[in-house]
Design a protein around this nucleic acid. Structure first.
Lengths: 222, 222
DNA sequence: AAAATTACGTTGCTATGGCAACCAAAAGGA
DNA sequence: TCCTTTTGGTTGCCATAGCAACGTAATTTT
């Protein structure tokens, strides 16, 4: 049985009272599914017509590069929405695979039926979707900016500054391991390690595993 | 005076009868503006709350890299919609500048008022926006894939294949000059020229200025 | 706890591609 | 028409970063 309180905390149903979500979903096909650790929730190239919502567990959206890189595009935790852009675009192929990182419980909601069923709150849901998708556009745009930068140093700095802004602190942990970070930045793992060492040597950053501390901000002169 | 027939041909108002668009826009602030060739329509970093629609002329959406590159992200021609993601996201800064390439006539429509005014067709407009924004997401995603590829050759091939698919032909003209193409691919102009020459030498492609002809498809063995 | 696997750093070698400079051709303006 | 400006191709030099291989620490498995 769906927990409408929880759905009310997702970006898509934000601002819609649980009772109303319940009423709305009465006339819309939904299916709840469980996935084991490591299982594929969405394959790269799939055409999906349902919005997915993670109820429990975490999953990763992964894009496979042509040369074997596995770029983690997004981390999905409970209340995360996925496949929204995919179903919103109609007939497009998923650019990413979604893999369960731990046992996951997911609900799929038919997009077409959701947006076509007239309901006093469907207006609100559509606006929420526009906002959600726009945010994902900007997230992707940040990634694009990183890849547009040249040089490992510049990319690392852009990434760390993004994390700093998001955490509102110069000290933070990242959710990537080195291999994943290197792939995300589009550089060799060894080149990344080399550059991180250099930056530590120059007193720009401090780090231990996936914990980072930015000592000098961009443009600071010593 | 706005031409509602024309607005009906835009992606946002697709499927909405002109009469209804007129009625819808009665209660929504709109402003029509003209721009001279070269004039800035949107500055990078601007926070915009209005959807823009090009009525006449062409404009370019340009992203400035940190190292002086000017990456043409989109070409806006009559009936093109822009700043939709920007206004849909609320309070985000524009990642691109929009510049008039020739004299332009543009109409701005207040996003909030458009989506909040109850109207029998606002539902349709919201769905259209979701689709429009999703398509832009996928366009950006293609760009991302190109930048994820390593090597000039691979990037050029990805780009040309994209153009081939879009034109459904192995012969086509591109809307970039060499400098723009190099910036879009994230490589040096000289490196691009070098690689194009090589590929011509290997009999993979043929080209003259911005006209290209793909002779061998990816994976073809001679 | 030992063994195996994974994660991270390091380093030398080398190819790729960035940089700069230059030339030729074409386009645009006076 | 001629002159200026823009656009595209070529080339040598060199630094960056890719590749491979290895060592160690940390984590997981049995």
């Amino acid at each position: 049985m769906l927990n409408f309180e929880q759905l009310g905390r997702t970006s898509v149903f934000e601002g819609v009272p649980p009772k109303e979500i319940e009423g709305m979903l009465n006339s819309v096909p939904t299916k709840e599914e469980s996935f084991c650790k490591g299982e594929t929730i969405v394959r790269q190239g799939d055409v999906i017509k349902d919005i997915g919502i993670v109820l429990k567990g975490t999953a990763l959206a992964i894009k496979n590069g042509f040369n074997g890189e596995e770029v983690v595009v997004a981390r999905l935790t409970p209340d995360s929405v996925f496949a929204d852009i995919l179903s919103g675009s109609m007939n497009f192929e998923s650019p990413v695979a979604v893999l369960a990182q731990e046992p996951c419980r997911v609900v799929f909601i038919n997009y077409t039926r959701l947006v076509y069923s007239p309901h006093p709150y469907s207006h609100k849901v559509l606006q929420n979707m526009i906002k959600t998708i726009s945010l994902k556009y900007f997230a992707q745009n940040l990634h694009l900016e990183i890849l547009m930068a040249k040089g490992v140093r510049q990319r690392v700095l852009l990434f760390l500054n993004g994390e700093r802004e998001q955490n509102k602190s110069c000290e933070f942990s990242i959710s990537f391991d080195r291999r994943q970070l290197a792939d995300f930045l589009g550089v060799e793992r060894s080149a990344l390690s080399r550059e991180l060492s250099r930056m530590k040597g120059e007193g720009i950053i401090e780090y231990r595993k996936n914990f980072f501390h930015i000592l000098k901000l961009e443009g600071d002169k010593p």
